[in-house]
């Protein structure tokens, strides 16, 4: 048991401090508030401030945590919306591009004297060695083998092999087994465009070294092959060099972007044996030069 009488110093301290508090409680400060009240208020205000800061910190942590949880959910929702909107945007953009292409095809179709049939590209060739595409038109639509296939940019290729009722395979012009009669639009120098394995993927053969061929000249279908109608663009001369033999080495950049073919036109003209180009109906206007 603590004997307070033996703790004289403690007792004195307690009494003195107690009386100081008592005095302070009665003494007004400069602001008119008793010192005790002011000191107590100040000290308590600090405690309150500390407690409030602590509680505010906890509140902030809690609020931020909850807020962050909400933000995370909102973020996920927004990400989902962004993804959804991106897909929709791409769809709309694709639709717009498709509409543009269709319009170009329609323009081509209406401006072309030959009968054509629009067709969607529905597949490619799984064999990398053969550059073909599959279109959604077939024999039921009047599509026959060796019919020319064109796009807004120019010549695409020709129908090959047996056709299905609602599908047909198209050998594109850049295939190494494909070829088309062509001429230089500027000089009317004739030759034959064939697919090659390097870039650019077309080469114009059988053009005399004497011919005037420059880079940038347009290469057009001549129609002498009996498949591709005369006047359709094939590509543009990228380089023209004098060859080691009789013919020039001419590299041609196709005017059709074969990597993004989606809609094409099938020229509903039965193939025929090679005939003079005058017998092949020419398009009413040169469209789709590809540039």
């Amino acid at each position: 048991m603590l004997d307070i009488r033996r703790r004289t110093g403690v007792l004195l301290l307690v009494i003195v401090v107690g009386q100081l508090f008592l005095i302070s409680a009665q003494v007004p400060s400069k602001s008119g508030v008793p010192v005790f009240q002011a000191v107590t208020f100040g000290a308590f205000a600090r405690v309150q401030g500390g407690a409030a800061g602590f509680l505010r910190g906890i509140g902030n942590i809690w609020g931020n945590y909850v807020w962050l949880r909400g933000v995370r959910g909102e973020n996920e929702e927004l990400r989902k919306q962004v993804t959804d909107l991106s897909v929709r945007l791409q769809e709309q953009r694709a639709l717009a591009q498709r509409a543009t292409r269709l319009q170009e095809l329609l323009t081509l179709q209406t401006s072309t004297a030959v009968p054509t049939l629009a067709a969607d590209v529905i597949a490619g060739n799984p064999n990398p060695g053969m550059l073909t595409i599959t279109i959604g038109r077939g024999s039921a639509d009047g599509v026959q083998p060796d019919m020319a296939v064109v796009a807004a940019g120019g010549v695409v290729g020709r129908i090959i092999g047996p056709t299905a009722a609602h599908a047909a395979r198209v050998q594109v012009l850049i295939d190494r087994n494909a070829a088309a009669g062509a001429y230089i639009e500027r000089t009317h120098s004739g030759g034959m465009v064939v697919g090659v394995d390097h870039d650019p993927p077309l080469s114009m053969d059988l053009v005399s070294n004497m011919a005037d061929v420059k880079a940038g000249d347009m290469v057009m279908a001549s129609g002498v092959d009996g498949i591709y109608p005369k006047g359709f663009a094939i590509g543009r001369v990228e380089s023209s060099e004098r060859g080691s033999g009789l013919y020039r080495a001419i590299a041609v950049r196709p005017s059709v972007d074969f990597s993004s073919l989606e809609e094409v036109l099938v020229v509903l003209v039965p193939p025929r044996s090679a005939v003079p180009e005058d017998s092949v109906p020419a398009p009413a206007a040169t469209v789709g030069t590809g540039k």
Partner: peptide, 8 residues
């Protein structure tokens, strides 16, 4: 007066 001063 102020209670405590005399007491202290």
């Amino acid at each position: 007066g102020i209670v405590g001063i005399g007491g202290l």
